[in-house]
Simulated assay, not measured.
Amino acid sequence: MPVTIPCYPQCIHDADVFIQSFRPGVCERRGLGPKDLARIRPRIIYVSVSCYGDGGPWATRGGYEPLSQTANGLAVDEGSYEHPRFAPTRTLNDLLAAYLAATGALGALIRRAREGGSYHAKASLTGASMWVQKLERLRDDEWRNISGDLTPLPVDLMRTQSGFGELKHAAPIVRFSETPAFWDKPPTCLWRGFFALARQKVIQSRRRLGYPGDFGPALSNSGTSHIVLRQSV
């Protein structure tokens, strides 16, 4: 099936890093595989994140956090065969795989600056917790009965202005002395664009049906979105 992305290939020509998390093979079938993009944009860094990696009998399967923790035995390590349990943090692979993928992209950018070329960085949810399993484990008495104040310190939090107002959220784990972390594009109110499009479609439909009147969005004091039809007299 040919790709149907409106900005393709224009957006690819301007990209340094391309990141996708589809099942292996999906992007290739749509002309967005690493070799396809490298032909369009030499020196591009291609990053793939999957559940089970790009090789083996489960490569083409979709999956998410709970499945990856179960498939590689982490749930058994944390509990038992009779009573498996997820990692204490609940989400482990979702975060770790993203950090590993970002690290791969940064490493590829550094190598590209030195040697040139295009590179493909790969990470997987299952592979992330398999790596954790290879590390030395804490003894049960070192973590099961932890007590004390776990309130985040001010340095662990940051504030960012967004379309929703000021957001207070966890700061990145990795910190640099000369380049403080920030959000270049913070979250925006996606519903504004959605209702603007919906308003336009309803107006067009009403005109085709011959109805007089106008259509407009309104917001209540609570912030709940409403659709209001105003009938002309």
Rank of each mutant, 00 (worst) to 15 (best):
G79Y: 12
A75D: 08
G163R: 07
Q20I: 15
T160W: 00
I44M: 03
D149V: 12
W183T: 10
I19W: 12
M158R: 10
V76M: 09
L37V: 03
P42H: 09
A15Q: 06
L167V: 01
T126E: 01
W131L: 10
I40D: 01
A113N: 10
G79M: 12
R137H: 14
P88G: 09
G163M: 07
R30L: 14
M1W: 05
D184L: 13
I173G: 09
T91C: 14
H226E: 07
T60G: 12
V26L: 04
V26G: 01
L219S: 05
N93H: 07
T89W: 07
V26N: 03
A198M: 15
R114W: 11
V155S: 15
N93D: 14
V202D: 02
P66D: 10
L106T: 07
S21Y: 06
Q204D: 03
T70A: 15
T126W: 00
R39L: 07
S177I: 13
P57R: 04
R230W: 10
S21V: 12
E166W: 11
L37M: 02
L197K: 14
D54N: 11
R39C: 05
G63L: 15
L67C: 10
D36H: 07
G213E: 05
L125F: 00
I203E: 11
D14A: 12
S232Y: 04
R61E: 00
A128V: 11
A59Y: 02
K185F: 13
T103Y: 13
P2Q: 14
I40C: 04
A181N: 08
V49Q: 09
I44Q: 00
